[in-house]
Amino acid sequence: MTTEAQHDQPTSRTYFLVLVGLLILLALTVGAAFLKIPGHTWGMIIALTIAFAKALLIALYFMHVKFSHKQVAAFAAAGFVWLGILITLTASDYITRNHPASMNYKGEPRYLQSDYPGR
């Protein structure tokens, strides 16, 4: 962690640029929240993408993941990967919860086989 990683440590200037970048991203995400974007999904995607970009900047530079051993990066990623598992599989239930086989994905009733001509 110390010896060979030492020489490419970030300087105060790097830190300052990262801070400026973070503040610009903050302004962007606040601005995007006031745009009239149709559909809630897109607003959410934009907000979370910017949040991930900010988190990445913090982790890579402020928390030195970029300058540390690969092991550290793996440890840092593990928590987020597992959170991804939790959210994805929980969402797999919530997204499909209210359309049983009798409805299509729009919630319209699905018809009996005899209603389909040609089957």
Partner: peptide, 22 residues
């Protein structure tokens, strides 16, 4: 072990599709 927890919810009212996946 982190991918299978839904089998405890099969009859609890979880989505049928979720049940199949789990």
């Amino acid at each position: 072990s982190f991918l299978v927890w839904g089998h405890h919810l099969f009859v609890a009212g979880m989505s049928m599709y979720g049940g199949i996946v789990f």
